[in-house]
């Protein structure tokens, strides 16, 4: 026992990587389980044309306990008056709402509702008071977006929380800025427009719709073009590089020295 403690001290990097791997595996497992439950829910709903009234019913059944029967907000959840359909689409279709469990912040997971159901709830919320609408196809069209401009705007406005490569980062007291890989264009757009949770709002006067499309194009460029240098080690920067060189670089070379100096039989 005591022997092990001593080794922990000396092999710190190894230990942290072990924990890291364990943590990632655990996180992956949890999200898979949650995802399965959620998708079972979603598939049981019939995909038909739904109206704002259906949206209201869905809202009363699933959201009103925290956001209030008239979406006016309660101590458990903020008011949704004026948040707009864009906010509903983002929160519901990234699976952040309804909250899986209370914690520092809502986490992305498999959505609990179908797109139609979400749209219906969005219509209901939008009818309460005007707010940002779900972006149209033209707005999200990145065919002639400027990737370089998107990168620059992203670095100035987004990278401090989400990391330059969109790998995510820590905020205060357990909150975090999520990883931005493989996110639907509409959801990126809606997040900027509505400022979900602690993310600031980036209205069209701050980042214009064209610039928002540029950012989406940049993020999708990163998704589609893996690092030219090979595996990117999570794009976490020097920390993962340092762990890698200690564990696999120097570890591998130490293994070689053992082979090199072992007596042949």
């Amino acid at each position: 026992m005591a022997h092990r403690s001593k080794k922990t001290g000396r092999r710190h990097p190894l230990a942290s990587l072990g924990l890291l791997v364990l943590g990632l595996v655990a996180a992956g497992g949890v999200s898979t389980v949650v995802g399965q439950v959620a998708s079972a829910d979603a598939s049981s709903q019939a995909p038909t044309q739904l109206t704002a009234d259906d949206g209201e019913q869905l809202f009363q059944a699933n959201c009103a306990s925290c956001h209030g029967v008239n979406a006016e907000g309660t101590p458990e959840g903020p008011s949704l008056i004026g948040v707009g359909a864009a906010s509903v689409d983002f929160q519901v279709m990234t699976g952040r709402m309804p909250l899986a469990f209370s914690g520092p912040q809502g986490m992305a997971r498999t959505p609990q509702f179908s797109q139609e159901q979400s749209d219906a709830m969005g219509e209901y919320i939008a009818a309460l008071a005007p707010g940002p609408d779900v972006p149209s196809e033209e707005v999200l069209d990145t065919a002639d977006a400027n990737v370089a401009n998107g990168g620059e705007i992203f670095r100035i406005n987004c990278a401090m929380c989400h990391n330059v490569a969109g790998a995510g980062g820590a905020l205060t007291e357990g909150k975090f800025a999520p990883d931005l890989h493989d996110i639907d264009a509409a959801h990126i757009y809606e997040a900027m427009l509505t400022g979900p949770q602690n993310m600031p709002v980036f209205n069209d006067d701050n980042i214009s719709p064209e610039e928002k499309a540029d950012i989406i194009a940049y993020l999708h460029f990163l998704d589609e073009n893996p690092s030219v240098g090979g595996f990117d080690l999570g794009s976490l920067g020097p920390v993962s590089e340092g762990l890698f060189i200690w564990i696999f670089g120097l570890g591998g070379i130490v293994a070689i020295t053992v082979w090199l100096t072992a007596k042949p039989n």
Partner: peptide, 16 residues
């Protein structure tokens, strides 16, 4: 360092 991580609900600014 540039301090720019603004949390719009807590109104905290974090230096990364």
């Amino acid at each position: 360092c540039p301090v720019a991580l603004y949390e719009q609900q807590t109104h905290h600014l974090l230096c990364p």
